[in-house]
């Protein structure tokens, strides 16, 4: 099963709508609620990152009987130093992002915490790709 959702950079009123759709799908598929929560929290963190930092992005979701694989790709400024970005507390968020309740430098570490596998790659001035894999059992 495959699904694709668009993410608008800068549009905080829509931030979370893609993750919300994924949550509805996982509930319909009767996935374990704890796995749903871990998955959608990590997707939401990644979606907010796209809204906060990039121009536009996509969330591609693949669900099979064993796992959920989600790729979030954006066109944006990219991340110059991924190791630094993975450190809790490191943030380049704008004041607007902080007003929305984010930008504390906890997003990427929280994605890692809530996923079984997380892969991230980025090219400065091109964009960032985050892959999140959660197993269903």
């Amino acid at each position: 099963m495959e699904f694709k959702f668009g993410i608008e950079g800068g549009n905080f009123s829509k931030a979370g709508s893609a993750s919300s759709e994924v949550k509805k799908i996982l509930k319909q598929l009767n996935v374990n609620p704890k796995i749903i929560k871990r998955t959608v929290v990590s997707l939401y963190e990644a979606e907010v990152n796209v809204v906060a930092h990039a121009f536009e992005g996509n969330m591609n979701v693949e669900i099979d009987p064993e796992k959920i694989v989600v790729k979030i790709e954006d066109k944006g400024p990219g991340i110059p130093d991924i190791n630094q970005a993975m450190q809790e507390g490191y943030s380049t968020a704008t004041p607007q992002v902080r007003e929305m309740g984010f930008g504390a430098g906890m997003g990427l570490p929280n994605i890692k915490r809530n996923s079984d596998q997380m892969n991230i790659s980025s090219t400065v001035d091109v964009g960032t790709q985050v892959e999140i894999i959660n197993y269903l059992s």
């Binding site: 905080f12 993750s19 929305m100 997003g107 929280n110």
Partner: peptide
């Protein structure tokens, strides 16, 4: 960001942040 790190069930969120992301965060 702090709320998203909590995995306790049966929770009342007490907040002064009144925007859509408060609702989205709670949904997730």
């Amino acid at each position: 960001s702090d709320v998203l790190t909590i995995d306790t069930e049966n929770l009342l969120l007490i907040t002064g942040l009144n925007n859509l992301q408060t609702i989205r965060t709670s949904e997730m």
